[in-house]
Design a protein around this nucleic acid. Sequence first.
DNA 1: TATGAATGAGTTTTCATTCAT
DNA 2: GATGAATGAAAACTCATTCAT
Lengths: 198, 198, 198, 198
Amino acid sequence: MSDKRTRILRAALVVFAEHTVAATPVPVIAREAGVAAGTLYRYWPSKEALANAVYQEAKAAFTSCLTRGVPAPTTAGDVAEAYGRMWTNLVAFAHEHPDALAFLEHQQHASYLDARSKAMAEEAEAPAVELIRAGQQLGVLRAADPQLLITMIFGAFVGLTKAARAGGLPPAAWQEASRAVWSMLAAAETVHQDKDTP
Amino acid sequence: MSDKRTRILRAALVVFAEHTVAATPVPVIAREAGVAAGTLYRYWPSKEALANAVYQEAKAAFTSCLTRGVPAPTTAGDVAEAYGRMWTNLVAFAHEHPDALAFLEHQQHASYLDARSKAMAEEAEAPAVELIRAGQQLGVLRAADPQLLITMIFGAFVGLTKAARAGGLPPAAWQEASRAVWSMLAAAETVHQDKDTP
Amino acid sequence: MSDKRTRILRAALVVFAEHTVAATPVPVIAREAGVAAGTLYRYWPSKEALANAVYQEAKAAFTSCLTRGVPAPTTAGDVAEAYGRMWTNLVAFAHEHPDALAFLEHQQHASYLDARSKAMAEEAEAPAVELIRAGQQLGVLRAADPQLLITMIFGAFVGLTKAARAGGLPPAAWQEASRAVWSMLAAAETVHQDKDTP
Amino acid sequence: MSDKRTRILRAALVVFAEHTVAATPVPVIAREAGVAAGTLYRYWPSKEALANAVYQEAKAAFTSCLTRGVPAPTTAGDVAEAYGRMWTNLVAFAHEHPDALAFLEHQQHASYLDARSKAMAEEAEAPAVELIRAGQQLGVLRAADPQLLITMIFGAFVGLTKAARAGGLPPAAWQEASRAVWSMLAAAETVHQDKDTP
DNA sequence: TATGAATGAGTTTTCATTCAT
DNA sequence: GATGAATGAAAACTCATTCAT
C-alpha cells in the first residue's frame, strides 16, 4: 500500500519541524512513520530528496490554502476584504498544519533546496503580490515594494504562531493581530497620524 | 594567547549562520577560525557548548545594542521616540552584525540551547516589553499582549533583513518600514480609519 | 513456464561477466532477465547458489565444446590434429559464448564456489590432460606437468580473447596463435633451435 | 606516523587479492592494517580511490621490476637474453609480490579503475612491446601483433603462478616454462617443424 | 507460481572527540 | 597550550531476502 509514501512524508514533516532536517537521523523519520529505515529509499533517493518533497508539499498546501476564496479586488473595500480573507486563511493554515508552517519557517535559505523547491517558494508569493499591487493602485495600501511587505506580514504572522505555540493564543488575539497588520499595510490617510510616527 | 577564543566564537557564528549548527562539522569551524580542531575543546567541552556560547554572545550583543540610548518614556512623544530609537538600533544591529542576526533567527527552539541561553532569550525582550507597557498605559500603543507585539515586530523586522540579504534594500526602505511597523503598534486614533480594517 | 530458469541463468551470466558476482545486485539480474527479483528465489536459495549454477553451466558448456570431435591420439600426427581440433573448439567457444568465457576467467578462486563447482573445474581439464599425456608418451609434446601446460595454454588463450574483446582480432591471428601455442607445447626437435633459447 | 598509509595499502592489497575489491568490506581492510575503519578515509576519499591507489602501486612495482637489467637488444642473441632476463624478473616478481600479481590479474577491466590507473596499465606494457618489436625486426621473433604476444605470454605466466599457488612449483618448472614460452615467441626456423603444426 | 514492496542487517562514510606529540 | 592524526560510534545508504498478494 503506497500510502506509505504519505506516511513517510507526514512523519518527516513532523520530525523535521521539530528538529531540523540536518539534526534528524533517517531512522527517526522511519520510526515515526512506522516503516523500516530502508523503505524510505524506495521512495526517495536520499534524505535530501525527501526533505525537498516535504518542502514542496508543505509549500503547495500553503499556497492553495492561502488563495482559497480570495476575491480579485476592484474597489478599496475589496482589498480589505481580500486581505481579511487571506489572513483568515493564514490563521486556518496555522491551525490545521502547524507542522508545515513550523517547517517552512526554517527552510528559507536551506542549502539543500533544489530548483523546484525554490521555484515553488516564489510561486507561493504570487497571489499576495498581486493583491498588494492592486491595493496600491487603488491607493489603499502603502506604496512599498510588495515583496518587502509580504515578508514583513509573514514575519509578523510567524511571530504570532510562535507565541501561539509557546503559550496558546486566545482567538481574539488573531483578530487583533489582523487589524494591527492591516494598519501596517494601509496607506497613511490622516495628517495628524504622521506627527507621532518617527 | 586566548584571542583564539574570540576567533573561534566569531568563526562559529559565521558558519552556523550560514549552515546551521547541526550541519556544520567542527573541522569547518576550526578552519574558518584558523585553529586546529582540537583547540576548540580547550575552550568548550563540546560543539553544543560552543553553540550555546555563540548564542549567548549574540543575544547579549543584541540586547545591549537594542537598549542603547532609549529613554524611559513618560509622555506619548517619548514612546514614539523610544520606538524610533529602538528601531534604529535594530537596523544598526542588522548592519553591524548580520551573521549574529541570521544566527539568532534560526535558534528559537533549538534543542541544544541550555538554561542560560533560554534565560537570556527572555531577558532580551525585557526592555521592549517595558516600552510597550509604558506606551499602552499612556494610551499610545495598541492594547495587546506585549510579548505578542514584540514577536510580531521582530518577525516583521526579520522579514526585512531577509529581503535585505536577498536583494539589498535602499536606506529609505528601512524608514518606510519603521513607519509601517509603528502603524501596526499604534493605538487606533481615528474613526474613519476603522471603516476599512477588517 | 520454467524457461524462466534459463532466462535467469543467461541474464546472470551476462551481468556477472561484466560486473563480477559480488558487484551485481540481484535486482539487476532480475531486470536483465525480465522477471521479478523474488522469482529468482523460486529457483535458487540464494545469489550464491545462482552464481554456482551459472558457473557449472558455463563450465559444462566449455568442457563439452572442448572435446567435440577430438580423436584419441595414437600417432604423432594424431596429437597435432587433436590439438588443432581442441584449439578450434576453444576459439569457437570464445566466439559463441564470450560471456561464459569472460565469466569463467574470473572465478578461479572465487570463495563462493561450492564443492560441485570445484569438481567440475577439475573434470573440465581431464580431456586436455589426457591428450597431453598421450602426446608426451609419443614424444611429440614437451615433458612437463600436464596441468601446468594446460594452465599456460589456457592462460595464453585467455590473453587472446582479452585482446579480441578489446580490439577485435583478425581471423588469421587465431591461426597464428594456434601455431605459436603449438610451438610452446612441442618437444624440442632441433639442436640449432636450442642455441637461442634461454 | 604516516606509514599508516603504507600499512593500509599493504593490507588492502592482501585482502583485495584474496577476496576481490567488491567483496571486501572496509572494516576488514582496516583490521588487517591494524587501524580503525575511519582512518582509511583520512588517506583516500573512498574505498574505490584506495583500490585505485593499490592498483597503481602494484602496477608501478610490476613495471619497474620487469625492466630491471634488461638490455636494449641489437643482435639476435641480445633478444633471447633480454627475454630471459624479463622472464626471470617476472618470476622474481611472482615470488616477491605474490599478492600484487594475484591482484593485478583480476583487475583487467574493473569498472572502478580511473584514468590514471588505465594509463599505467598501458605504460606497463611498453618495454615488452619494444623488446618484441626489436626481436621481430631482427627476425628472431614471430611476426604477430606485439600486444597480442604480450597478453599471451603474460596469460601463460599467470597460468603458471596459479599452478604455483595451488600446488607449489619446483624451480625447474619455471625454467622449463621459460623455454616453452620462448618457443611460442620464436620465429619458425625449420621447415620440418611446420609439418606437424596445425 | 510470480510478483515487487518491504525489511533490516550490513556496508560505506562522516564527524565529534581524544590524546600523543 | 596547541595540534591534527586517529578513533569509533553513529549516520546515510544498499541490497539479499522474505512474504502478502
